[in-house]
Amino acid sequence: MEQQSYKKHFILLSILLVVLFFINISLGSVSIPYREILNTLSGGIPSKESWQTIILHFRLPKAITAILVGSGLSVAGLLMQTFFRNPLAGPFVLGISSGASLGVALLILGSSLFGGFFLTNSISSWSLPIASSLGAFLVLSAVIIAANKVRNTMSILIIGLMFGSLTAAVISVLAYFSEAAQIQQYLFWSFGSLGNLSWNELLVFIVIYTSGMLATLTIIKPLNSLLLGENYAKSLGINVKKSRNFILLITSVLTGVITAFAGPIAFIGLAVPHIARIIFSTSNHKTLIPAVVILGGIIMLICDSIAQLPTSEFTLPINAITSLFGAPIVIWLLVRKKKIFV
């Protein structure tokens, strides 16, 4: 029939996701036998009590975080690429991540600068995502306002990059006046980390993530009509302005919350939508959105496993791994396929 069925793809990828989820949990500085892991995850008590703590309070939340971060960033990237009709768009390129960084920098570094107000209540699980989302939303709005004036996609990308360097400059100034401990705290946040979340924080993360994802389902229709350009979308009954604001809101909330909890993670948001388009060879968002969710989770789990693997004592910064591992894959896929789509 006309509507190609992707059932086989989805089943295979889902199995891969589950397998990688378990592999990810099984890796770490302490080696725990597979049977004990399965036993613990299904509610049993392993033969060593410390193993239970390691699995339930460190590795399980980290693996869940990896899936949320990977899938959330991929959806945000997909939304931006469709909205700007530009294959180079993504949360990172358009300065949204830098905006989130600025929010966090103001919170962590600014606390010493502006004194008492921030300092009294030490950074709680809510203040980071709020600061980060606000920062992301502010920069994105600025990019959009500027984008409405120029309308040329190349200029929009450059404006996004400019906002990126602008926020980076503000962060440098903040860092210059900050104390070493706070700079270090910010620096570690900027390396990206999937492993610092308590279950309480993870719960906050899941709630915001889920509402962003549910909202994404409601804009599948405008996203598909935007594939024909804004004028056609409008003639098809889409309120372009409303859809645009909604797309931007979802993107900034997802990017903001992810950046707050896991740091500014590069590359995933740009690359996963391309990988999904190449594997599924479609532009229909009804297929692409679930596809990037699963693929984003898979790729983030792989990256995190690699970050664990080489020297089991340390965890490499996840932000470096995503680019080191992912960029060559995208290059390879594009060289093979020779054509790139929005």
Partner: peptide, 30 residues
């Protein structure tokens, strides 16, 4: 409408493209 502007590059099939014409009548998930 049928416009002169170029369609943005995408992998839409002819059927999908024509089916987009039904958007005013389809439900929220199209």
């Amino acid at each position: 409408l049928v416009l002169t502007e170029r369609l943005p590059e995408s992998q839409l099939t002819v059927f999908e493209l024509i089916a987009l014409g039904r958007q005013p009548y389809t439900n929220w998930i199209d």
